[in-house]
Amino acid sequence: MLTNRARAALITMMHTVAIPPFELFYEEHRAEVMRLLRRRLGRERADDAFQETFLRALQAYARLDHGEHLRAWVLTIARNVAIDVVRRTRSTEEVVEPAGEDGLAAYDDLAPLTDGLPPKERAAVVLRYGYDLSYDQIAHALGSSADAARQATSTGVRRIRTRRIEQ
């Protein structure tokens, strides 16, 4: 049995979803991003944070591998921007780590998919699809190059796919 997060990660791995033109992505999510930022920062500080959120999204957009989970992705960026704003203004607001639906860490959540993979591939797949890290960030975490991180991730994903098809 897979948890929802593991299932979602598997679906992402099995299908590459086209990335929509940024305009459509922006129009679809800007209202919700604004709501989140106003809730966290108030009306005054939300405007700057809004611009910052979508500029960060624009910067990362060219490096996306697929168009899955874009709503969750942009809301994560917005939360991070809000955290930065709060830090800058020296508030004492607490930063809460995101957890899976049942409180599992992504590593455990994805275990049914990644069990039995060589350690480096397993780590790369979990960081990519469980934590949504970029290949640069994965490379940093694993002490390798971004190319090697991409290679380890795709080899791991291929292994998982083959195993799922054989089952």
Partner: peptide, 23 residues
């Protein structure tokens, strides 16, 4: 929650002048 036309315009201008737009 609507985004004001002024904020929308500022975002689009910033995106363009920072060279973050493909088209």
């Amino acid at each position: 929650m609507t985004v004001s036309p002024d904020l929308d315009r500022r975002f689009r201008e910033a995106a363009s002048s920072l060279g973050l737009v493909d088209l």
